[in-house]
């Protein structure tokens, strides 16, 4: 039982500071959750701490690969604007 960080992670350190189990490793190019250490914060906090502070939508997934913070959930950008945002971000990443 563990969460997963994917390539969308920007290595901002926020989750590192709040994980109660030191389960997050500052790997490059993106951070990694140590499966054996992660408890999904069950019994410790009401919310998985990494997912409660991570600013990047889609960067933290559950075991099934479902994002805990799906597109639009953190920025409040409505669905009909998300495609436009995606285009902009692709350009910015270049």
């Amino acid at each position: 039982m563990a969460l997963i960080i994917n390539h969308l992670c920007t290595c901002c350190d926020a989750c590192l500071h709040v994980c109660p189990n030191d389960a997050i490793r500052a790997e490059q190019p993106y951070y990694l959750i140590e499966t054996t250490l992660c408890t999904e914060c069950l019994g410790e906090y009401a919310e998985a701490q990494c997912a409660a502070i991570c600013p990047i939508e889609g960067a933290i997934l559950d075991e099934l690969g479902v994002p805990l913070n799906p597109p639009g959930s953190l920025t409040g950008i409505p669905p009909h604007k998300l495609a436009a945002l995606q285009r902009i971000e692709m350009q910015l990443q270049k």
Binding site: I77, K81, A84, L85, I88, L92
Partner: peptide, 10 residues
């Protein structure tokens, strides 16, 4: 818009 922020996109 090209900054990709909420305000930019909106």
């Amino acid at each position: 818009a090209e900054h990709g922020t909420y305000y930019g996109v909106m």
